[in-house]
Every structure is written in C-alpha cells, then in structure tokens.
Amino acid sequence: MLIRLDPGSPLPLGDQIAAAVRGAIADGSVRPGERLPAARTLADSLGVNVHTVLRGYQRLREEGLIELRRGRGAVVAAGAAPPGRARLVEGVRELVADARALGLSDEEVVELVRTGLATG
C-alpha cells in the first residue's frame, strides 16, 4: 500500500489517504479482514496530524470498506466484497468528478444515476 500525500493538490490530505487505501483494497494488496496501520503510527509515518488520518479512515468507513472499532483499530471489511466495492467507489468518484467538470448540479447527477438504475 503506497500512500503519497501531495501538499499542492486541491484534494484534502484525509481524502488523499482514503484514496490510497481504497486503491490498495481494490488491487488486493490489502486483503479483506486485514488490519490497517494504527492511525497514530500512520500519522507519525507521514508526518501529519492523527486527525487527518482518522478523517481518511472515517471516509472509508462511510463507504463500507473498513470497520473502525475501539481497541481493534481499522480493519478492512471481511468477505469477498471489499475489492469490488472499492473499485465501485472509485467509479463513483470519477463520475462525480466528470459531472462537476461538465457543470452538472447534484440533483442532475442523482437523476442520471436514478435513470440508469431504472433502466438497468
């Protein structure tokens, strides 16, 4: 799992961490059920605030890719789903980026997805 933080990027550092972990889950270099480095350890390693790492982990938890438990730290969700799910989330992020570049509003994007779901 390679995590690169570019201070010049418009993407917040927490999101950059989330993206790197998501990529690692998608390509299988972090396996379902595997424990991620403790937030404090990773923060020290990258030289960032521990809350920045926790924000990234929180984002992944919202996406259903990892579980955060007190005392156990961050663990990639178990089962066969995480790699595919991580790729799906990456696809969603691409979709959102493309929509923003085209100047679509949030409602228009949701409407597009809803239409796609209805016909799919």
Partner: peptide
Amino acid sequence: LRDGEAVTWTRS
C-alpha cells in the same frame, strides 16, 4: 518524489 511530498509504503 516531488518537493514536500510525504510518502509511506506499508504492507503486512
């Protein structure tokens, strides 16, 4: 590496 870039590689 870019200037000021923070990088970590970790694997179990």
